[in-house]
């Protein structure tokens, strides 16, 4: 029993980038264990796109014909696939629905569970994973010792890798009981880059003074192909929607590049962003605490710096 099962989520028919990372992560673990990397996806992944998973390291794709929307449905699908494939390890990328499914999968498979995993496991002495804890103030090493392990990985835990594996898509059937939760309405902004998936995030805080000033933030994000985010007071005051709020009580992101504009850098804000690879801080106060947690800093008025930065980026990119 050394196979790895990876749950793949899709958006507009294609696998999400975070799920492709999960496939590469799972393929690397399968190599360490000497097993196969098997991906499982539901009908949200279109048949045309299913084969692409081989490029990221899947030896096989189990394609389920139905849809799974609620966490309990994902959990049943993944547990059934894990049992069929005799999986020793189950991997998923962090996402709201997958996060809900992970603990259920853990109970179903009597597995050890680790969420927020930030690196490949260490198999030199058992099965040890590194994960974030104390809301980003610590990393911890946890030994998982039941037969099956369920991991949810953070963005940038291993990155993607290109493989040259043959394409093998199999259809997969599972009995999924309908969720007791009825979805009445979905209000979703389409076309925007989703914050948890984004490689670059442009975030702004109370320093921007009011919602009417977000135009320059959106333009900068557009130039960079970035998602927009904000601090908690900004979403509390309804300047920006709640799903943009990052930090201790909001979304935790780990993009390659995080711009913090007019954000002071309170410890609860840092909790959601300090695992970003590179942090750029723009603040008019040279004493703003955020500079201590930044890689690059500019002291200046956002209303002057942001438009100039946007022009410079447009010229360069």
């Amino acid at each position: 029993m050394s196979n790895v099962l990876i749950y793949v989520e899709a958006e507009n028919g294609a696998a999400k980038k975070s799920s492709l990372e999960a496939v590469s992560y799972g393929a690397a673990v399968a190599e360490m264990l000497g097993g196969k990397a098997v991906a499982v996806a539901a009908a949200d992944l279109s048949a045309d796109h299913a084969g692409e998973l081989a490029k990221f390291g899947a030896d096989k794709v189990l394609h389920f014909g139905g849809t799974v929307n609620q966490s309990s449905e994902i959990a049943e699908l993944v547990a059934a696939a894990a049992q069929q494939e005799n999986a020793a390890v189950v991997v998923t990328a962090k996402s709201i629905n997958a996060d809900g499914a992970v603990p259920m999968i853990g109970v179903k498979l009597k597995a050890s569970v680790a969420t927020n995993v930030t690196a490949l496991p260490d198999l030199s002495n058992g099965f040890v994973v590194t994960r974030a804890a104390y809301t980003g103030k610590a990393i911890t090493q946890v030994s998982l010792h039941s037969n099956v392990k369920v991991l949810s990985i953070k963005k940038n835990a291993s990155g993607t890798k290109e493989y040259n594996k043959p394409l093998a898509v199999e259809s997969f059937n599972a009995n999924i009981s309908a969720s007791k939760i009825t979805v009445k309405e979905v209000k979703k902004q389409t076309g925007e880059i989703l914050l948890p998936e984004a490689d670059i995030v442009v975030s702004a805080g109370r320093g921007l003074k009011g919602p009417e000033n977000w135009g320059m933030i959106e333009e900068l994000a557009k130039t960079l192909g970035a998602a927009t985010a904000c601090s908690k007071p900004v979403s509390d005051m309804d300047w920006r929607p709640h799903h943009e709020h990052v930090g201790q009580t909001g979304i935790k992101v780990s993009p390659n590049l995080y711009f913090a504009i007019g954000i002071s850098g309170a410890i609860q804000h840092l909790a959601g962003v300090n695992s970003s690879k590179v942090i750029v801080v723009i603040n008019k106060d040279p004493e703003a605490p955020f500079f201590k947690s930044a890689d690059y800093g500019i002291v200046g008025d956002a209303f002057e710096v942001v438009p100039k930065l946007n022009e410079a980026l447009k010229a360069a990119l």
């Binding site: 569970v113 680790a114 974030a132 103030k137 090493q141 030994s143 998982l144 010792h145 201590k292 890689d295």
Partner: peptide, 16 residues
């Protein structure tokens, strides 16, 4: 099912 081996500070950024 699990055992915490140790905690550490996350890697620190070099100065800004």
């Amino acid at each position: 099912y699990t055992r915490i081996i140790k905690y550490e500070m996350p890697p620190q950024r070099s100065s800004v």
